[in-house]
Computed example of a mutant assay.
Amino acid sequence: MRFSTLLLTVVTLGLLSACTAAKTPVSEPVKNFDAGRYMGTWYEIARMPNRFQKDLQRVTAEYRLNEDGTFEVTNRGYNSEEGEWNSVIGKAEPIDDMPASFAVTFQWPFSGGYYIAELGDDYEYAVIVGDNTDYFWLLARQPHLPRWLIDQTLARAYEWGYDIEQIIETEH
């Protein structure tokens, strides 16, 4: 009995550390990042499909800076199938020695990599990537971006290994 308890404990700790350990982003995060300028409301322009945003449109993310340097993020979207708004609140913790890199947790103890791969000069848009090519978001301060900027961003996503045919453009 003791061995099985020890084995379960070791496996559980291993899984938890794998969920929260910093991984390698798909693309290098930006070098110069000003958290204060990043705070506020962002509109999702495009994303890779994922299970937690299924059927969501009019998606926004609102970031608030906490005194300890972490962010609180509220993601909100309209579920067209259910006819209702969904929202979730998470916490983003900076990853040491990696600017513009965060471990984001919406359901403890699980976290995922959130890396700001590109930012507009005036923080008017941002490209977010994850630990692998399952996660990609194009965000903007306004609900729409010029078509040339979306196309240019998708071209870079393709270079980073994303299947851009799967990317969903968000309706607002």
Rank of each mutant, 00 (worst) to 15 (best):
A21R: 11
A22I: 10
P25G: 08
V26E: 02
S27T: 08
P29Q: 01
P29K: 02
V30T: 09
K31N: 10
K31Y: 12
F33K: 05
F33Y: 07
D34M: 05
G36Y: 06
G40R: 01
G40Q: 02
T41S: 08
W42D: 00
E44D: 13
E44T: 15
A46P: 00
P49Q: 00
N50L: 10
N50E: 10
Q53D: 14
K54C: 07
L56I: 12
L56G: 09
Q57Y: 09
Q57M: 10
R58V: 10
R58L: 08
V59Y: 01
T60G: 01
E62I: 15
E62D: 14
E62Q: 12
Y63D: 05
R64Q: 13
L65A: 04
N66M: 06
E67T: 09
E67I: 07
G69A: 13
F71T: 09
E72H: 01
E72R: 09
T74R: 14
T74C: 03
G77Y: 02
G77E: 02
Y78R: 02
Y78A: 11
E82D: 15
E82T: 13
W85Y: 06
W85T: 15
W85G: 06
S87W: 13
I89S: 06
G90Q: 11
K91R: 12
A92Q: 06
A92I: 08
E93Y: 12
E93P: 00
P94S: 05
P94K: 00
D96K: 15
